[in-house]
C-alpha cells in the first residue's frame, strides 16, 4: 500500500494558502503527521479522505488517482475525524452496523459477526445497547476508531485521536492501531501529541504553515537534535534568564533551584550537561534551530 502526494496545494476561498506544494510518499505502516495548530494537517487529512478537493496537485493511492477514482479509494478508507460526535439517537451497535453497511458489508449475517467482533476488540461489547451519546469520552473514541476500522480499510486516517483521553485509554488506542498496522495498511496519524508518534510510527512528516518541513523517520529527527539537548541546574534567578534565552522542554523544581531541559546549540555560563534527545526534543530543536521558528510552549 502506498500513497504518493505530488505538488499538492490548497487555497481556501478566503485566500488562506493552507497547503503549499507538498510532495511525499507514504508506505504501509504507521505514519505520523506532526505540526502546530494551523499547520495544514487537517486540510491534508480531509483531502486524503475525499472530503475536500485540492487546488492543485495529485494524490495517488496505490496508483489510483484521488480525483478520478474516488469511488474505489473511498471503498478502502477508514476515517476518524478530529471532532467526532455521534448520531444521538443511535445505539452503539446500530452506529457500528450503519458504518459497516456503508463500508460495503452487505451480508447481514457476516456483518453481524464482524460488528460484534469489532465491539469486543475495542471493548464496547458490553455497551452495545447503550445509546452512543451515553458513552464516556474514551468509549466514544473507541467507537470512533471501531467505525474507522470496520470493513478492513487499507488507508486509515485518524486525526488527533487521543486528545482528551487518559493515559490508559491512550495506550490502549496506540496498541490497537499498532496491531492493525501490521497488515498491509497505511495508517496516518495526525497529531500534535508527540508521544503518539514516538511510540507507534516508523515514518513521519512535520508540517508547518502549510509546508512539509520534514519527512523521514522519527529516529533521524532525533539524531538531528543530538548534542543540542541540555539539562541545566539553575537557581531561581538563572531560571528566569534561561526562560528568556532558550526553549524550555521541561522544568522540575529541585533542592538547588530548578532542573531545566532546554534545546540549544550551547548554554553559555550555565551549569548543565547534554542529555539523550527524544522526539519531543527533536521536534522543538527542529522548529527552533532548523526552521528558525520560535517554538511556542503549549
Amino acid at each position: 500500500m502506498r500513497i504518493e502526494i505530488k505538488g499538492l496545494n490548497k487555497v481556501y476561498p478566503n485566500g488562506n494558502h493552507a497547503i503549499k506544494d507538498v510532495n511525499m510518499t507514504i508506505e504501509s505502516g504507521m505514519f505520523g503527521l506532526l505540526g502546530p495548530n494551523g499547520a495544514g494537517k487537517s486540510t491534508l487529512m480531509r483531502i486524503l479522505v475525499t472530503l475536500m478537493k485540492p487546488s492543485s496537485g495529485q494524490v495517488l493511492v496505490n496508483g489510483l488517482d484521488l480525483m478520478k477514482d474516488r469511488k474505489e479509494i473511498r471503498s478502502m478508507l477508514g476515517y476518524l475525524p478530529q471532532d467526532f460526535r455521534f448520531f444521538t439517537k443511535l445505539k452503539t451497535y446500530e452506529f457500528l452496523d450503519y458504518a459497516a453497511r456503508l463500508a460495503g458489508l452487505t451480508n447481514g449475517k457476516s456483518r453481524r459477526e464482524i460488528v460484534e467482533k469489532m465491539l469486543e476488540e475495542v471493548g464496547l461489547y458490553e455497551a452495545r445497547n447503550r445509546f452512543a451519546n451515553n458513552l464516556s469520552g474514551g468509549m466514544k473514541r473507541r467507537l470512533g476508531i471501531a467505525q474507522a476500522l470496520i470493513g478492513d480499510p487499507k488507508l486509515i486516517i485518524v486525526d488527533e485521536p487521543t486528545t482528551g483521553l487518559d493515559p490508559e485509554e491512550r495506550i490502549r488506542f496506540r496498541n490497537l492501531l499498532t496491531r492493525v498496522s501490521d497488515k498491509d495498511v497505511v495508517i496516518i496519524l495526525s497529531t500534535h501529541i508527540v508521544g503518539d508518534i514516538s511510540s507507534t510510527c516508523t515514518d513521519m512528516a512535520l508540517m508547518n504553515k502549510g509546508i512539509l518541513s520534514y519527512k523521514g523517520s522519527p529516529e533521524h529527527l532525533i539524531e538531528l537534535a543530538r548534542n543540542n539537548v541540555w539539562k541545566i541546574t539553575a537557581t531561581e534567578t538563572e531560571y528566569f534568564e534561561i526562560q528568556e534565552k532558550y526553549p524550555i522542554i521541561s522544568s522540575i523544581p529541585s533542592e538547588e533551584g530548578w532542573e531545566v531541559q532546554v534545546v540549544s546549540k550551547e548554554i553559555n555560563g550555565y551549569l548543565g550537561e547534554r542529555i539523550e534527545p527524544n522526539l519531543e526534543h527533536a521536534y522543538v530543536n527542529f522548529m527552533e534551530n532548523e526552521l528558525n521558528q520560535k517554538w511556542i510552549e503549549i
Binding site: V49, T50, K71, R74, Y79, P81, F84, A99
Partner: peptide, 9 residues
C-alpha cells in the same frame, strides 16, 4: 459525524 458517512463509498 457526517464526515464519517461522507467519506464512504
Amino acid at each position: 459525524t457526517t464526515e464519517v458517512v461522507y467519506m464512504r463509498s
